[in-house]
Design a protein around this nucleic acid. Structure first.
Lengths: 142, 142
DNA sequence: AAAAATTCATTCGTATACAAATGGATTTTG
DNA sequence: CAAAATCCATTTGTATACGAATGAATTTTT
């Protein structure tokens, strides 16, 4: 009994959740096409880290919308790759300060070139106006 | 050396990828608020299953933009909950046919009410026109 | 200052995601 | 028709995500 006279039926393909999911998938495919060396998540963390220089692990997570449990794994992997270092905050023994290494900073400098391309290519089906509109609308949603 | 004279610097927060991520997070938070009983992924699979009645596992994955490996797990869990059944396709021994059970169909009927609300609430920061625009733009992106 | 509340990082458990490899079934090609 | 190519489902391995619980450190309240 899948029919419910047209308009009232739930059509997965029209739902915002599904469209967000597909747009994200396409974006990530473009991302890994241009940047196979880091995950998009690791790149986001590294970018924020290079932006702020040093920050506690949880605070980093908050800035990039990542759960404490998630960000821990991401920082672990950045550290394993030599892109970041951590040390206990002397001011607050609870905090773990995270810093980008020199290597991490130059990797970011290198990657960010590709990152601009990724953004551009993701938005390439849209014209200038539409792209700006989309960003504005998405910002309103979050 | 995080500065690069304003416009040229890479700002994570303005990137399409980051905005998509945050919009998705908010959407999922709303989803689980209204529908704590199924995951959004399981709901999507169930919805498509109820729409088409029967379909091979891989084809189901294709219709809802899910990897074969991913959809296998999702179908396993739907089966474990009694929402779906599977059997070998007699016409093609490679295929695994997936069908929603009666229980799955009535669960979907029940859930889809909440699903409409979820879509509405996700889009609630936007007016009618903006919402339509967003859907159109996202569709162009995928 | 002692108790209560909050914050921090970690761990555990479950659920996506997806690349890559595998082996069996079916189709396509030469 | 036989070989090659394709398709199907599964398994393995890695990386998010995030809720919930934990214990240690700090802050807030009283």
């Amino acid at each position: 009994m899948p029919d419910q006279s047209k308009d009232t039926a739930y059509k997965l393909d029209n739902q915002i959740g599904f469209l967000l999911r597909r747009a994200t998938q396409r974006h990530l495919a473009i991302f890994y096409d241009h940047l196979p060396d880091v995950t998009s998540t690791q790149f986001a963390a590294l970018a924020k880290l290079c932006e702020v220089e040093h920050i506690s692990q949880n605070e980093l997570g908050r800035r990039i919308a990542m759960d404490a449990a998630t960000v821990k794994g991401v920082v672990d992997r950045l550290r394993a790759r030599g892109f970041a270092e951590t040390k206990k905050d002397p001011q607050d023994q609870r905090r773990l300060l995270v810093t980008p290494t020199i290597k991490g900073q130059s990797a970011f400098a290198e990657y960010s070139k590709a990152a601009f391309t990724i953004t551009r290519e993701t938005l390439s089906p849209l014209n200038e106006t539409e792209a700006r509109q989309l960003l504005t609308l998405l910002l309103k949603l979050s």
